[in-house]
């Protein structure tokens, strides 16, 4: 297994567990879509798998080892709202540099115009900003991407563009993918396997 969650338990307050014994595994070379009703815990599980939240019980294994705590995490996330995932007071050049400094060719591949680097987030549209979030997540050390509804806020042309960029990169570099989505059509287009959240517990 490339990424594995074992018997994960998590709740935001003690009386109500959102995740109660979730088991989930994604194999090498798979692209998995996770589908489930609103509020069931998909985003919470994503954040646990990426190491942002610590489960109250259970463990997350990447390549059979726990996620590293002090170095670059090989599991990276792209969120639904790019404006909430970047620092509003930084130019996007600095936002990218948080993770790595891509060369001009990579930026071109991502459809990022060089002049956007010197803009602030408020001066870009959602689709333009989401390209930066995808580029930032695709640092050389990244081995796995979790896309939590990353194209829901985008128009269909931009959505198709962003997924095309993402799929090209993850196929070239053999990166694993978990896509959280509500769209069955999108899941069928992008992924090799579709998992319903209810099946995990």
């Amino acid at each position: 297994m490339l990424l594995e969650a074992k018997n994960i338990k998590f709740g935001y307050n003690k009386s109500r567990l959102i995740l109660n014994g979730v088991n989930f595994g994604i194999d090498y070379g798979e692209r998995v879509a996770l589908i489930g009703p609103s509020g069931c815990g998909k985003s919470t599980l994503s954040q646990i798998l990426a190491g942002y939240l610590k489960p109250q019980a259970g463990e997350v294994l990447f390549d059979s080892k726990p996620l590293p705590r002090k170095e670059f995490c090989p599991v990276q996330m792209v969120y639904q709202h790019p404006e909430k995932a970047v620092n509003p007071r930084w130019k996007l050049r600095s936002t990218l540099a948080e993770a790595w400094t891509p060369d001009a060719e990579f930026l071109d591949d991502m459809g990022i115009a060089p002049e956007w680097l010197d803009r602030y987030p408020a001066e870009l549209s959602g689709g333009e900003m989401q390209r930066f979030c995808v580029a930032r997540a695709l640092a050389p050390q990244t081995k796995f991407i979790i896309a939590d509804e990353m194209s829901t806020m985008l128009d269909v042309i931009t959505q198709a563009q962003i997924w095309e960029l993402m799929l090209r990169q993850i196929q070239q570099r053999n990166i694993g993918l978990l896509a959280v989505t509500h769209s069955m059509e999108l899941a069928e287009r992008v992924c090799t396997r579709i998992v319903r959240f209810e099946e995990l517990t």
Partner: peptide, 14 residues
């Protein structure tokens, strides 16, 4: 172009 980019109708970006 919007129509053709929909996941159900080809997913082809312009």
């Amino acid at each position: 172009a919007l129509w053709r980019a929909m996941p159900g109708n080809g997913f082809r970006p312009t």
